[in-house]
Write a protein that binds this DNA or RNA. Structure first.
Length: 357
DNA sequence: CATCCACCGGAAATGTTGGGAC
DNA sequence: GTCCCAACATTTCCGGTGGATG
């Protein structure tokens, strides 16, 4: 830890602040939906917004504020990405018992159904797209049609879909209220960073311009905080704009590392392959074939067995859901059926920042 | 107008792990 | 233990796609 960091916590991305910047409307919407928590009816909610706009923190602080008699369960579906794994988590939450594999899905469902009948429960399904990709909407269908549905609230969170992409029968019983998180403005990002810096760093240790630069580059708070944290870790006295500029790319790499952390080494190698190819050819888009070839090469260099093309195709989809690559699908055409893949540059705005007043 | 590109993505198969019942 | 079953990650298999090309 460098001398300017007095309290590292507020710069961590899992730090949940007590108040939010520019999220009054969303807060009101959420509170209205839970006006009467645990009483007559709990609503289902879908939170939508691009990455780093506070969706997860918002849901977590909501769970925090619920009365103790309400049982809560937070499930990051990028890690618990099948119906079964998610059911296990919910089971553990409602029974307070550890559980291993081997039980039938129907046993888990029955038990969950019984318990939620007695205790009001709120389940948050973060990164819901990952669960939908594997098992479709079977989990949401079950949860939305559970006995005593008024005792169970389902909060889904997605950075990719305004509405949960589910079949009609599920949509009609889920009926989620949608809350959108519009992107933070440059001013918002600045304010958030300043607040965190005040709670974390020594007085006078950050130049205003340094924060301004970050704030004018990205609206993704996760990335912005990773960036500021990196700067703070490398600074003895004062974080300057210049220093921040130099750290832009390493900070983005670090941000991606964090995103990919819950995934397999293969995911990281696939992403590395995409990055290398984009760097080498500076052609903006790459097709699936060359990516798999490069991935294969990387595996051989590491003396590891590569997975098959079919599997890597799914992993590319994962990277897409994480919004770190963008894919344009061609279902036929002069290049056949394939995808054009690009590195997502949305969070890296290379135009020089506008000076602040 | 037939053919082809080059991989998409569904479905079934495989091998592994961890149940409960006997 | 042994047997059978469920779920998982991954592999294997393959029909399908539609603009470009001749």
């Amino acid at each position: 830890m460098t001398p300017i960091i007095e309290n590292p916590a507020p710069l961590q991305s899992d730090y949940v602040p007590e108040t939010f910047v520019n999220r009054k409307e969303e807060e009101a919407g959420l509170q209205a939906a839970f006006a009467d928590p645990g009483d007559t009816s709990l609503r289902n909610i879908h939170l939508y917004g691009s990455r780093g706009q506070g969706k997860t923190h918002f849901a977590l602080s909501l769970l925090e504020d619920l009365p103790d008699r309400v049982n809560t369960c937070y499930i990051p579906c990028n890690q618990y990405d099948t119906q079964y794994k998610a059911l296990q988590q919910i089971y553990q939450s409602v029974t307070q018992e550890e559980i291993n594999n081997g039980y039938h899905t129907s046993d888990l469902k029955r038990e969950i159904e019984e318990r939620t009948g007695a205790v009001p429960t709120v389940v948050v399904l973060d990164e819901i797209d990952f669960a939908l990709m594997n098992d479709g909407d079977s989990l949401l269908y079950f949860l939305s049609r559970i006995k005593n549905a008024e005792n169970l609230s389902i909060i889904t969170i997605s950075a990719n879909h305004q509405e949960p992409p589910v079949e009609e029968r599920t949509r009609s019983s889920l009926q989620p209220q949608r809350i959108s998180f519009p992107p933070y403005t440059g001013e918002n990002v600045y304010e958030i960073l300043l607040k965190r810096a005040k709670h974390s760093l020594a007085n006078q240790s950050v130049q205003k311009e340094a924060l301004t630069y970050i704030a004018s580059t990205t609206d993704n708070i996760q990335y912005a905080l990773t960036w500021l944290r990196k700067a703070a870790q490398q600074t003895e006295n004062t974080i300057t704009e210049n220093q921040v500029k130099k750290l832009q790319s390493p900070a983005y790499q670090k941000y991606i590392q964090q995103l990919l952390q819950p995934f397999t080494p293969h995911h990281r190698q696939v992403f590395q392959s995409v990055q290398e190819l984009v760097d080498e050819r500076d052609s903006s888009s790459i097709r699936t074939g060359p990516i798999y070839e490069r991935y294969n090469q990387l595996c051989h260099e590491h003396r590891e067995e590569p997975l098959t093309e079919r599997r890597i195709s799914d992993f590319l989809k994962h990277l897409e859901l994480l919004n770190i690559i963008e894919a344009k699908y061609h279902y036929g055409g002069k290049n056949g059926k394939t995808r054009d893949i690009q590195i997502n540059s949305k969070h890296i705005n290379l135009t020089p920042p506008k000076p602040r007043k």
